[in-house]
């Protein structure tokens, strides 16, 4: 995207304009909300954060303490890093699994965004024969229960000689009906026809129009789709477990092995949960700013 400065300028200008407008609006109609709003949000946040905090509490404790106290203490104990160390040192191939997860999640997120935006652009803004039925078909594919697809999908992967390889996890996730539907719905509203027409008048080919106009307009939705896809494939368990197995695992598959002992050592298991969630939280913090500003720029069309 960086190779086309023109686009960034346009997007930037549009965003700036809309941001300015919003600022003006803030002074007028949209006053800062009162404490009730913050109280509600605080409560929502508390509920959202507690289970994860609970995992941290268990991860920083030890097996005996957890077993003896069903209600954990309010503050973490001191064993968090010891326990995460135990997870990394155990024979579950933590680092290779982490690397596999990074590869799978990154490749999937990137490819889903590109292909979904492409298809969403086509479905929402271009006219072609069979558009309606094809879109319905895409959505209908989501209704197929995934549990049953496992055996035939495994057969496909075995035919392609991909079982046990990362490609077997990446390929089925490279473009999703969800992503296509999501981008279609977003671009439907967020991309004005005037922009496309303008680009066409300027002599842009279809693909350039897509790249110069649709992509920038899709940025906020694309950022979210990327994040959702990344998280989704990072946390996916069943299919990677079946097709990869413990030989070449992704992180959730590897971490599941922490439960392979005779009893559930929750301090170890939850340390695994925390260790696998930390990278996501980091992605979150880094992408978060981008994501929120992305959302703010959502009104390119102004």
């Amino acid at each position: 995207m960086t190779s086309i400065p023109m686009i960034q300028q346009t997007a930037g200008a549009g965003a700036a304009r809309s941001a300015a407008r919003r600022r003006g609006l803030a002074r007028g109609a949209n006053r800062r909300p009162g404490w009730v709003t913050y109280a509600v949000l605080g409560a929502v946040l508390l509920i959202s954060a507690y289970p994860l905090y609970y995992a941290v509490l268990l991860a920083s404790s030890d097996a005996i303490t957890i077993a003896q106290n069903p209600i954990p203490s309010l503050l973490p104990e001191g064993n968090l890093f010891t326990n995460i160390g135990r997870v990394i040192a155990s024979d579950i191939q933590f680092w290779p699994a982490m690397w596999n997860s990074i590869v799978v999640a990154t490749v999937t997120a990137f490819s889903v965004v590109v292909f979904s935006t492409l298809a969403g652009f086509s479905f929402s803004k271009l006219r072609f024969r069979g558009r309606g039925p094809l879109l319905v078909f895409v959505i209908a594919t989501m209704a197929v229960p995934t549990q049953l697809g496992i055996v035939p999908l495994f057969i496909v992967m075995a035919e392609l000689d991909l079982t046990g390889k990362l490609a077997a996890v990446i390929i089925p996730g490279m473009v999703t009906a969800f992503g296509v539907f999501w981008m279609t719905q977003y671009l439907e509203e967020a991309l004005p026809y005037e922009l496309i027409e303008a680009a066409r008048v300027d002599g842009c080919s279809m693909i350039r129009t897509f790249w110069h106009v649709a992509m920038p307009a899709a940025r906020p939705a694309a950022a979210m789709l990327a994040l959702f896809t990344f998280v989704g494939s990072w946390t996916n368990f069943f299919w990677p477990f079946i097709v990869l197995g413990a030989g070449n695992p992704t992180l959730p598959v590897a971490l599941q092995l922490l439960q392979a002992s005779y009893f559930k050592d929750y301090s170890l298991i939850m340390a695994g949960v925390v260790a696998s969630t930390i990278p996501l939280v980091l992605v979150f913090i880094v992408a978060g700013r981008q994501l929120v500003t992305g959302i703010m720029q959502g009104a390119v069309k102004g």
């Binding site: 929502v44 994860l52 946390t235 368990f237 696998s276 913090i285 978060g288």
Partner: peptide
């Protein structure tokens, strides 16, 4: 940003977890 990210926080926790 804080509030928005906070609301999305549960989504990063894997279903198994």
């Amino acid at each position: 940003t804080f509030w928005r990210m906070g609301v999305l926080l549960p989504y990063v926790v894997a279903p198994v977890a």
